[in-house]
Design a protein around this nucleic acid. Structure first.
Ligand SMILES: [Zn+2]
Ligand SMILES: [Zn+2]
Ligand SMILES: [Zn+2]
Ligand SMILES: [Zn+2]
Lengths: 138, 138
DNA sequence: ATAATACTGAGAGTAAGTATCAATTAGGCG
DNA sequence: CGCCTAATTGATACTTACTCTCAGTATTAT
């Protein structure tokens, strides 16, 4: 996933800098949903820590390139997901406690084909958010 | 849509206050994707303006009740959508310029039924975000 | 109408994100 | 490889977004 992400960054004509590689590594490593603050924290640990502004700039750039995607799991600040090669991600969010259940297989292709035809737009990825009270909140 | 939203608020055991009605009215009226600042701005116009903290509290409460949903359209702050009675919303976002194309009919039921069975969770709504460069960015 | 309780608003405080600009670095080219 | 140039970075200051607190107010039930 990391290699793919780096390749997409390069293909878009951007330089692969230490900061960008590190942000991508952090997001890919944990394969988690991290906030900007969490990325910043992890990026400050090793040698060659990355500056505050650079983390925000990098997250914005990667979002624009659709390599990562922000999603609101709880009030305040978004959590970032690395979009896999096929551009799919799906999870269920409990709106009450904000727990997240990951969905591994996302069978949505049929629907997408139809939408693409109708709206004449090339869809490169998606995020399906489902909401429902989780077992702990019921 | 407003009436449904108010009913859901009451059913959850919350009081229908002037502030809550006003926030819901603003979000339903424009049927748009508004930020907290935009809601606050509109809520400050008439007589009986709502306080800053109350707007944020109300947005959080309505989100927790799944009556509205925050979505990421551009860096900074989330945009809020009123979830309709059936809990569906779908739009296509261009990650490059952040333009949004609304999708009116969201035929996703078959997929959802299967997920519900597998994850033993009652899904009450969803947001499907599709990403793809828009016609202006290509 | 009264009472109990949920809710609100003002204002101060904290956290998140942005702007600026001089210094640095990646990547192309000879 | 080593230079060149444009892209990128980081420090700092700044702006905007959001949260906390608590005394006062409004809502609902009886
Ligand atoms: Zn997820
Ligand atoms: Zn829950
Ligand atoms: Zn929409
Ligand atoms: Zn666009």
């Amino acid at each position: 996933m990391l290699d793919t992400a780096i390749q997409r960054l390069k293909n878009a004509g951007y330089k692969l800098t230490n900061a960008r590689r590190m942000v991508l590594e952090i997001l890919c490593r944990d394969d988690a949903h991290l906030t900007s603050a969490e990325v910043l924290e992890r990026a400050s640990l090793g040698k060659d820590p990355i500056g505050r502004a650079t983390v925000f700039r990098t997250l914005d750039l990667l979002t624009e390139l659709a390599i990562i995607r922000p999603t609101y799991l709880r009030p305040g600040t978004p959590h970032y997901i690395v979009m896999p090669e096929n551009g799919h991600h799906a999870h269920i969010i409990c709106p009450k406690c904000q727990r997240v259940i990951e969905i591994d297989d996302c069978e949505i292709e049929g629907l997408l084909d139809e939408l693409v035809l109708r709206h004449k737009i090339k869809i490169s990825g998606h995020l399906l958010e489902l909401y429902g009270e989780c077992e702990y909140c019921r």
